[in-house]
Every structure is written in structure tokens, then in C-alpha cells.
Design a binder for these strands. Structure first.
Lengths: 120, 120
DNA sequence: TTGACAGTTGAATAATTATTCATATATAAT
DNA sequence: ATTATATATGAATAATTATTCAACTGTCAA
């Protein structure tokens, strides 16, 4: 199936290395999920929302004030984050309160921040 | 400056929480760099290239075969990764060999993989 | 020197997506 | 009931970007 139809336009130069790496490569789904996760936090607005929610539970208006953006923008991004399962919300009166619902996000941020300090 | 011109279209509901979070928020540049880092690895092709290079030094043709994509595609993405300083290359004869040049990338992948296994 | 191969790169195309705008819903207050 | 507020959401717009295609450079071999 996947290995029988070739899209690459060149020959293998180091067959051993290629075979060895091919064996260790995770499947397509894994890479798609991995890329989706990083894509999710690869946006300034979502980064800031998640960072804020890591400090404190917040409603949409508070987030809009912290980020200095419209409620609509924030709400759209919160919907994305909610669909991906990294934040959860509870309703109380007119307001909807959001919290971070994923332990790994903060760890990724920590390593990311170390990375930034190491480079320019 | 940044706090005097308001783009948000609502009032603060919880002033204390907002102030506290605002104090702890990193600056704009930090979030931009952080988002750029995650954007960099938030692409299936680049994920696979980086994963492959973590296993073994490889030339462009080998990578094209491992990923089953054209040399041109791979080369374009390698250029992106090179500009961001996460891979480096050495030339030998006709070939150009790429290696991973960033300790943090692998750590981010590890956490990402744990994340995937925890969720769907 | 000619041809083949490895790799790069600019331009074009296609796809994705963040924000805005307008509107809709639900809750609270008057 | 009516009005104001908090939030959500669909559609449109604008910006970003991954891949393809074509052309180019540099290296090796004959």
C-alpha cells in the first residue's frame, strides 16, 4: 500500500540507514496527532490564553481584557481549545469560566521557554 | 503604551484575577517566540523529518525516501528547519547531510507522545 | 566537455486559518 | 416585558504556508 506507490523522485543513497529509520518511524496517525498538538499551541493567542488559564480560572471577558482582544476572538479560540480537550468550562450565571484541563501543556511551555532562553 | 489602547470590547469582571494574571504574563516577544517554536514542529512533514534525523544523520534523498516525498518538498522544509537553527548540515561530495541540532526538540516529542497516548 | 545526479530556490497554486462582523442565545436586572 | 450583558457562532476576509513545477548550481564520472 503506502510503500508500493512512490512519490519521491530519487534513489536511496544509504539503504541501511533508510531501512533502519523506516523501522523506527511511528505511523502516519501518530505524526498527525503530534503535529496537531503542536499546531494547537503554535499560535500566540492560544499560547497566551493557555498561559493565563494556568495562572487562574477565567471567564471570557477577563481573558479578553488580559489579552486585549475582542470577546469574539477569544471565544473562537476557546472553542478550538475546548474541542481539542485542553481546556474545560463551567457555566455560572451569565459567565462561562474556563480552566486548563491538560497536564502536558504546561510541561511543553516549560521546555519551550528553556529553548527560547538558550537561543536568540 | 500597550495597556492604554484597548481593543477588547467588554469590562473586566474579576479585576483581581485579571491584575494578578497580567503581572505574571511574559511579554509579547516571548509568546511570539514560543508560538513560533511550536509552529515549527506543528507540521507533519517537519515532525517526520526531525524524528528521522533523531535516529540518524541523513541526506536529502534518503529523507525523501523515508518520507516518500519529493526532494524539493524535503529541501524546502529543511531550509525552514535550518533557518530556525534546529538542524545543521554538512556537505560531502554531491550530498548534503543533515543532523538534529537541538536537544529540546526530542523532549517536546516525548511529552507530545505521552499526551497522545493519554487522550484519543 | 558532456551528461547524470544531488540539492537548492523562486514563483504559482491550493489549502488552512485567525480575526472581524453581524447575529443569535441565555441570563440577569430594571 | 424590556433592556443590558456574557457568550457563542456562521460567514467573509485576509494572511500564512505547504507542495509543485521549472530552472538553476555544483559535483562526479565517462
Amino acid at each position: 500500500m503506502s510503500r508500493n506507490e512512490f512519490s519521491c523522485d530519487c534513489n536511496v543513497i544509504h539503504q541501511e540507514a533508510v531501512d533502519e529509520v523506516l523501522q523506527k518511524m511511528p505511523n502516519e496517525d501518530t505524526f498527525n496527532h503530534l503535529a496537531d498538538l503542536f499546531k494547537l499551541i503554535g499560535d500566540t493567542t492560544r499560547c497566551r490564553i493557555l498561559f493565563a488559564l494556568d495562572q487562574s480560572e477565567m471567564c471570557v471577558c477577563d481573558l479578553a481584557n488580559v489579552l486585549n482582544m475582542t470577546k469574539s476572538s477569544i471565544s473562537h479560540q476557546l472553542a478550538v481549545l475546548r474541542r481539542s480537550g485542553v481546556v474545560k468550562c463551567r457555566k455560572s450565571g451569565k459567565e462561562v469560566y474556563y480552566t486548563l484541563d491538560d497536564e502536558h501543556i504546561v510541561k511543553l511551555f516549560e521546555i519551550g521557554l528553556v529553548h527560547i532562553n538558550h537561543k536568540g
